[in-house]
């Protein structure tokens, strides 16, 4: 399971201020901490970044100065994405664009994935509202895969994202997303990769409940074959290591959590 460390988001005040001041200190500290807790990719969420096209370039170099991992470039801003991809160091893996979807406004981003040979998250939502169930998500995924194929993106470079919704407001969607993970994999041979924004599940829930909801939800998604999760590595690392034991991916030893 690939953990994509999520803590570098413009939504967080400390990160937003550091971005505005181009202060590397807090950004690098958070990135290093995520890596130490097992994140092998770091999400850089800079928001729409209008008029701040060079922000992603700064984020990518700032992160990769201290962490030997690829970056997940999280923005809808085409020019910012391209500037970030240009400076991304691929020594530790391909960059990941977050994200395209079935909204025509998000299609041009696919050209960047093809041009730079990087990975891309395909969010299975269209322009008109949220998908109702696993079948609808899979139908959108198939359309996105066809479109990606046309522009020359290999299927192995795509991470399908079923869009996790808040359990507090749309409880029935929690199970539907779990079912979607299995269905997505069947869309291709070798199976398609899958990713979720894990903390969406507990959005709007009491703060002390969120780690519990996140951890258990991740267990169920993992069992269905989830490839990657955008999450707080520090929070979920014990869950991921324990899941790897149960799924036979790691050999058990009493000290497995320390490894």
């Amino acid at each position: 399971m690939l953990i994509i460390g999520e803590k570098l988001s413009i939504i967080a005040k400390r990160v937003r201020e550091a971005m505005a001041k181009r202060d590397k200190g807090p950004i690098q500290e958070i990135a290093k901490k995520q890596y130490e807790h097992g994140a092998r990719m770091i999400d850089a969420n800079i928001g729409p970044a209008e008029g701040q096209e060079d922000l992603m370039e700064w984020m990518v170099t700032t992160i990769q100065e201290v962490v030997q991992a690829p970056v997940c470039l999280d923005t809808t801003n085409y020019d910012a994405l391209e500037m970030g991809l240009k400076v991304h160091n691929n020594e530790w893996g391909r960059a990941l664009i977050n994200s395209t979807s079935n909204d025509p406004e998000r299609w041009p981003i696919m050209d960047l994935a093809a041009k730079y040979g990087c990975d891309i998250i395909a969010l299975t939502v269209g322009k008109g509202g949220l998908p109702a169930d696993a079948e609808e998500r899979s139908a959108i995924a198939a359309e996105l895969m066809a479109r990606a194929g046309e522009v020359g993106i290999p299927m192995e470079n795509i991470y399908l994202d079923p869009l996790v919704l808040q359990v507090a407001t749309t409880q029935d969607q929690a199970l539907k997303v779990i079912q979607t993970i299995r269905m997505f994999q069947d869309l291709n041979d070798p199976p398609m990769k899958t990713v979720v924004g894990l903390s969406n599940i507990s959005n709007g829930c009491p703060k002390q409940m969120r780690p519990i909801l996140n951890a258990h939800y991740l267990s169920l998604l993992s069992y269905e074959g989830l490839s990657a999760a955008i999450a707080d590595a520090e929070e979920i690392v014990t869950t991921v290591k324990t899941i790897d034991i149960f799924l036979g991916k790691t050999l058990y030893a009493h000290s497995y959590l320390e490894m």
């Binding site: 050999l251 058990y252 030893a253 009493h254 000290s255 490894m259």
Partner: peptide, 10 residues
């Protein structure tokens, strides 16, 4: 095997 791994870790 699990104790073997554990000993190596320790």
């Amino acid at each position: 095997i699990n104790l073997s791994k554990q000993l190596n870790i320790m």
